[in-house]
Design a protein around this nucleic acid. Structure first.
Length: 468
RNA sequence: GCCGUUGUAGUGUAGGGGUCAACAUGGGAGGUUGUCGAUCUCCCGCCCCGGGUUCAAAUCCCGGCAACGGCGCCA
């Protein structure tokens, strides 16, 4: 595991995870370790201190006679979450008393201290308890995110988020995708610009990018064949829900010589790879979340690896399904949150919603003239991916015919001249291509059972929050 | 932005026109202990802001601010 590959640093010879995993080999050896003082027990002649670092937990044992009295009392008077460096010898921890019939826990290791260096004393009281079982409100947590992150289950959420990115990235690379980076400062207000954050670019007006969409397409036009980008997107929308943020990380791909079905297949293979890898490798993080959830009387989360292909519920069929449930909806209406609830009753996990009406999709989405609904409405090759009621992705095959692009812009009252930088790319030979954008935080919500995106974003930016 | 709800120790809650505002967690001091959700003793800490009604407001009313839930908005 990763622990055994950790090199010593200026401050420690071993991580706490290493003490536990390699304890048998380290017995009686002197080590130097560092961590946060999570719990301090004992004010008399002995003291136990639970030390935590990013790799695990280790008990440090101090006893009068083995350390100087002033060292012992300095540790006993340290506040929780202070950072401390200990030198000492590795020993087998004495087994805790267990009730009759309870299983005997596996052997653990501890460090019997002979030297102490308090690196940083934590102020008291803490704005939120790192190990306390009392509930803490999200607002308080976000105001004190640096402490909130030290909580085991919160830490686990971000470990899992990193795994999602790692597994997703490795899967795409295995399918021949190349990572790119597109500009986040843009000059033109693409698609009207009502949702863009304005900014100053030297003397000029500019905007923060709301999507890598047009740029990843230009990369495809440039012959890069298959590309992906994991990067921020900014939207100045006044929404205030559990699933919206004004800055979020989007996991985007674009692929040449492909249609919507092809990139849906890429996506379901990628998500399948992520879920099965987490199920195989990261049970520890899932368990950390469940340990917390039990203290809050919430149900355990389970990593159910979805089978592929994911169900496809075409837009027209979704409308019928919603109407059949008694809702007043007709072809051409948007599928709103309470409509998605009805679909989720039939498909609680991942499911695609392909073939949206062209009128509801942006100008760059591809359509075939002869693909229409039973009522004659023009269908598009745009799709969504939902997990339960929540939209994870929108994507589609892109329009690669320059003349159709121009007409599409006119159809939605945009001036084609504003999009010359984009359409120019299509005038000199363009491959049919398709792609999607996936919300990393929303996918992390789905994996970790979080009910608010803010839980899966380190420092979320919403309409009211711009700090920390 | 709309509708609804809520603002009480550091944190999370209970209560509620008139004793000393409660519980859990926490913080401080000390004692005991190979402890491990340590434990025991003692101590500490709170009614969002402004105005109004009232003999009396943390409690009722109005306004503000903030948060929460839902919705809308949304590439």
């Amino acid at each position: 595991m990763a622990d055994s590959t950790l090199y010593p640093t200026a401050y420690r010879t071993h991580s706490l995870g290493q003490i536990q995993t390699q304890g048998a080999d380290l017995l009686d050896k002197e080590v130097t370790i560092c961590g946060y003082a999570q719990a301090i027990r004992g004010k008399g002649k002995i003291c136990f201190l639970d030390l935590r670092d990013g790799t695990g937990l280790c008990q440090v044992f101090l006893k009068q006679g083995l350390v100087d009295d002033d060292v012992l009392s300095s540790v006993q008077n340290t506040s929780r979450e202070s950072t401390i460096q200990f030198t000492g010898t590795v020993a087998q921890k004495r087994a805790p008393k267990v009730a009759e019939g309870e299983p005997i826990p596996p052997t653990e290791y501890e460090v019997v201290a002979n030297g102490v260096n308090i690196l940083s004393q934590a102020a008291t009281p803490l704005p939120l308890g790192v190990t306390d079982t009392v509930h803490v409100e999200l607002d308080t947590r976000l105001d004190n995110r640096f402490l909130d992150l030290r909580r085991t289950h919160v830490n686990a959420i971000f470990n899992l988020r990193a795994k999602i990115l790692q597994y997703g990235r490795e899967h795409l690379i295995s399918e021949g995708f190349k990572e790119i980076n597109s500009p986040k400062i843009i000059a033109a207000a693409a698609e009207g610009g009502t949702n863009l954050f304005p900014m100053k670019y030297f003397e000029r007006d500019a905007y923060l990018s709301q999507s890598p969409q047009l740029y990843k397409q230009l990369a495809i036009l440039g012959g890069l064949e298959r590309v992906f980008e994991i990067g921020p997107a900014f939207r100045a929308e006044n929404h205030d829900t559990y699933r919206h943020l004004n800055e979020f990380v989007s996991f985007d791909i674009e692929m040449a010589w492909a249609n919507d079905e092809d990139v849906m297949a890429v996506q379901e293979r990628m998500i399948h790879h992520i879920w099965s890898s987490v199920a195989a490798n990261d049970g520890k993080e899932i368990e950390a979340i469940n340990v917390y959830r039990r203290t809050q009387e919430m149900e355990d989360i389970v990593v159910e690896v979805p089978s592929i292909p994911f169900p496809r519920v075409e837009y027209s069929d979704a409308i019928e399904m919603i109407a059949a449930a008694g809702q007043d909806i007709t072809w051409g209406d948007d599928i709103e949150a309470h409509h998605a609830d009805i679909i989720a009753e039939h498909h609680s996990g991942f499911h695609f919603i392909p073939r949206w009406p062209m009128a509801m999709k942006p100008f760059y989405i591809y359509h075939e003239k002869d693909e229409t609904s039973s009522s004659g409405g023009q269908l598009s090759r745009g799709f969504d991916l939902n997990y339960g009621r929540d939209e994870m992705t929108s994507g589609g095959q892109r329009e690669h015919r320059a003349d159709v692009l121009t007409q599409n812009l006119i159809d939605v009252d945009l001036d084609p001249a504003d999009f010359d930088f984009y359409i120019d790319g299509f005038r000199f030979g363009a491959p049919p291509h398709a792609g999607w954008g996936l919300g990393v935080a929303r996918l992390t919500m789905a994996l970790t059972g979080s009910r608010n995106v803010r839980e899966t974003v380190l420092f979320p930016r919403d309409r009211k929050r711009c700090t920390p």
